[in-house]
Design a protein around this nucleic acid. Structure first.
Lengths: 220, 220
DNA sequence: GCAATAGTTTTCGTATACGATTTCGTACTC
DNA sequence: GAGTACGAAATCGTATACGAAAACTATTGC
């Protein structure tokens, strides 16, 4: 994969990218206390650019900031998880519907290949790989979205979701099978040029079902 | 000494609120160059908190920031306007649908009163008041949305829209009449407990129609 | 008269420093 | 032993200062 080799732009940008990456990949898990001076030292910069980075992450919802107290990685609350999923279902549904007319046969083939790999994962029980493939699959579906704002919201949603991973994001074996089937159904809809409404609804439902499965598992 | 009354929160927060307000109310219109030192002086603070504020506003899409060049109020591009409206139609539609079951008779009455005031505005041609009332009306519809993330996105959308006002946001007399009627139709749907899908679709359509009217006017 | 260039000014970017606030630990009182 | 008060340490918040990059301006050469 593309490791973040690029020491791009200002130190503020670097700090932003670095902290964001650590939150998304789980190095800093929810509730983790982000001490400015410590992060600054880790990254070899001063606190000013780190503050800026944290503020930006706060605006994206990845970080909670409290005056004179400090920053923590946000999102321990299960309710938060529910809200995040609901929001994602809406913006991702819209993004997928808007993308659909622009998805070519090659994209569908690529997505299908990914989905078959996912099916393969089910045999060997590889949740980590499954999760990554799942993201790849959905990326194909919404990456052509012509509206950059919606695309941005989708990415933010996925990032939030990823950041919550360690506490609430869990692989539900029983659900995974259905998920793969729903993926295939979505591809069929796109291939046959179904109308935007149908695709949007299907995409939403797919995510809602995933949410329900998580909730059901959590209750047990 | 009547210093600028509410010295709420940190200076960073103050700067954030102040600059945001100026962008939304049109004091700083699209393309306006935001010089850090100047803003800092205006607000009586140093540049550091101003930088933070600008970064946050950038994350919200209200400001465009370019390395070593500076910040400008974003959104002159008409395409941007289209994307903003589309995004808003989606999140606002969802927010309205989610709010609907929680909207009480009193709320409906309040919204209806506002709408009748809007109808009144049509007689006396008062675009400014009409626009404000329109916001009030929609606020009633989505303010009960239980998902804070979606609510936040709606507010951001409205803010972006407001910030674009001076260049592209224009009152379309021919459209205003239909708009008021659609508001009433929306209220009826909510009163009769229509299902979420129907309400969502109606809310979206309402905004799409507004967008179309703007576009038609722009073309002329 | 125009274009290229060198010098000046403006503005950004970040390190450092210090005051303000919170938190935590310890001692004291009831 | 529990609760409170006080002091020390940690951490945040922001002003200032200075280096770096870009934008602007004036001058020179053609």
């Amino acid at each position: 994969m593309t490791e973040t080799v690029i020491a791009a732009g200002s130190k503020s940008e670097q700090a932003y990218a670095a902290v964001k990456a650590r939150i998304v990949d789980g190095t800093y898990s929810p509730g983790y206390r982000l001490v400015l001076a410590k992060i600054a030292e880790d990254l070899g910069v001063s606190v000013v650019p780190v503050r800026e980075a944290i503020r930006r992450l706060e605006a994206e919802g990845l970080v909670k900031f409290e005056r004179n107290v400090g920053a923590t990685v946000s999102g321990i609350d299960p309710t938060e998880f529910l809200y995040t999923m609901q929001t994602l279902s809406i913006v991702e549904g819209a993004a997928t519907a808007l993308s659909a007319p622009l998805i070519g046969a090659a994209d569908v083939a690529r997505a299908r290949a990914v989905n078959e790999e996912m099916r393969d994962c089910l045999q060997h029980f590889d949740p980590v790989r499954f999760t990554r493939l799942n993201q790849d699959f959905h990326s194909v579906l919404f990456e052509h979205c012509p509206n950059p704002h919606i695309l941005d919201l989708v990415h933010r949603g996925w990032n939030r979701l990823a950041s919550l991973r360690s506490s609430t994001f869990r692989f539900v074996p029983g659900r995974a099978h259905d998920s793969v089937d729903e993926h295939e159904a979505l591809l069929k809809l796109i291939e046959t040029g179904a109308d935007a409404d149908t695709i949007e609804k299907a995409a939403r439902l797919h995510r809602s079902a995933t949410l329900d499965a998580y909730l059901a598992q959590t209750k047990q």
